[in-house]
Each structure stands twice: as structure tokens, then as C-alpha cells.
Computed example of a mutant assay.
Amino acid sequence: MSIDISTHTGDFTSLNGDYDLDAAHSSLEFVARHAMITKVRGTFDDFTATAHIDGANPAESSVDVEIKADSIDTRSDDRDAHLKSADFFDVEKYPTLKFVSTKVTVTATNEIEITGDFTIKDVTRSLSIPFEFTGSATDPFGNERVGFTGEVDINRKDFGLTWNAALEAGGVLVSDKIKLQLEISAIKRA
């Protein structure tokens, strides 16, 4: 039995089809500054996404992402409980975060920008995320996979996440700027 583990690192314009996120090989991470001195990292562990990719006509491409708010994980049960509370994500009232693309643009051979409506709680803002197309490959199970990596900064206050606490020495407990880091692996539908 032969296994094809070939990798294709061509450009985004060579892609075509419908894809489903492989959550087991993808990550949605965020970084916030805590107490003005250190970074705290976290993830959302339960998310789904679909994409239609038309590399020849990127404007016809689309992405739809849904993230379960209560899947937030910062490696601290107390902090996670606070983030799930009404002070932050209010997961009882707003169980999902959503991103629905409105525009896909090729910005360089292996780079795209996906602009869309990002909704946290009841606030929707336009967000543009630059992504690097990291390649495609056929895995040992015959699945055609594509990979992307992206990173963008957002201001949490723009989405109604305003809770904070002042520090004695000045400054605040939680930074307004949050860095989102995305590693995406998706499988083409048969």
C-alpha cells in the first residue's frame, strides 16, 4: 500500500472547493496582558467553521465560523469562570461568538485578507484578518488539507467587554488590546 504524503505549497489562487475546519488540528488562541506586566494566553476549544474557496475568483470565497463561548480555557478555573460571567462573555445569554466573511482578497502570492462581521455578545464589528496560506497536502487517509495562519489585534472594549480593575501602582488588571492567533487546518469535502 502506498501513502501519498505529498505537499503542495502553491498559491491560494490554485485552491477551489468547499472545506470544513479540522478542529483537532486547528487552534483559536488569544493573548491579553495581565496586571500590565505579563501575558496570559487562552484558547477557545469548541468551534466549527466552513469555507468556500474560489482561488480563481477570491471575491466568491466565503468563511463562516462559530465559537462556543463557554469553551474558553486559560488554564485557571477561577479566571475561566469570571470570563464566562456577565462581566465578560455572559455565556448564559450569549453562547456563541461568530465570524461571517464579507470579503476575501488576495494580497500576495501566499497571503489573503478575510474581512467579515465578528460578533461577541450583541456587538458586531467589521474585522479584517490577514492570513498566510501555509500550503496544502494529501494526508495518509486521502483527505485534501489546506492550512492557514493568521493574527490580528482587537480592542475588547469595541465588543462590550469593558470590565476592569485599577491597580494600586497605576494601570489596569486586563489590557484592552487582545491578540488573536489562528492556526487553521481544513479538509476539502468530497
Rank of each mutant, 00 (worst) to 15 (best):
T124P: 03
K179E: 05
T48R: 10
V31Y: 05
A186Q: 00
T74Q: 07
T124R: 06
R156W: 06
E66C: 15
D80R: 03
F44E: 05
T43A: 05
R156M: 04
A186S: 04
F133T: 04
V100E: 10
L97R: 04
L127K: 00
D54E: 15
F118E: 01
R145W: 05
D117T: 03
A169N: 12
T107D: 11
K157W: 04
V104P: 01
G171C: 12
S14V: 08
T119D: 00
K68N: 11
D87M: 07
D158S: 15
I114G: 03
S6V: 05
P140A: 13
H8R: 01
N110V: 03
T115F: 04
S136M: 13
S136R: 08
T96K: 07
E168R: 06
G147P: 03
N155A: 11
F44V: 12
A49N: 11
A108V: 01
G116K: 02
P58E: 00
N143S: 14
R156Y: 04
A49H: 08
A24L: 00
M1R: 14
N164K: 00
M1S: 15
N155G: 10
D46Y: 10
R41A: 09
T134D: 06
D64I: 10
A56Y: 03
P140K: 07
S136T: 13
P58A: 06
T109K: 05
H25G: 08
I184E: 03
H34S: 00
S136P: 09
E144Q: 15
E92L: 15
A69R: 12
T43N: 07
A35C: 01
R41I: 10
N143A: 13
D22N: 14
M36Y: 05
W163L: 02
D11G: 02
Y94P: 02
I5Q: 11
S76D: 08
G10S: 05
F12Q: 01
M36W: 05
I178E: 00
E168T: 13
A51V: 11
V100N: 01
L28V: 09
D122M: 02
V65I: 14
A186V: 00
S14I: 09
V174C: 02
E66Y: 02
T102Q: 09
W163P: 02
N143G: 07
M1W: 12
V152Y: 01
I112V: 14
Q181D: 04
I184Y: 02
S27V: 13
S6R: 11
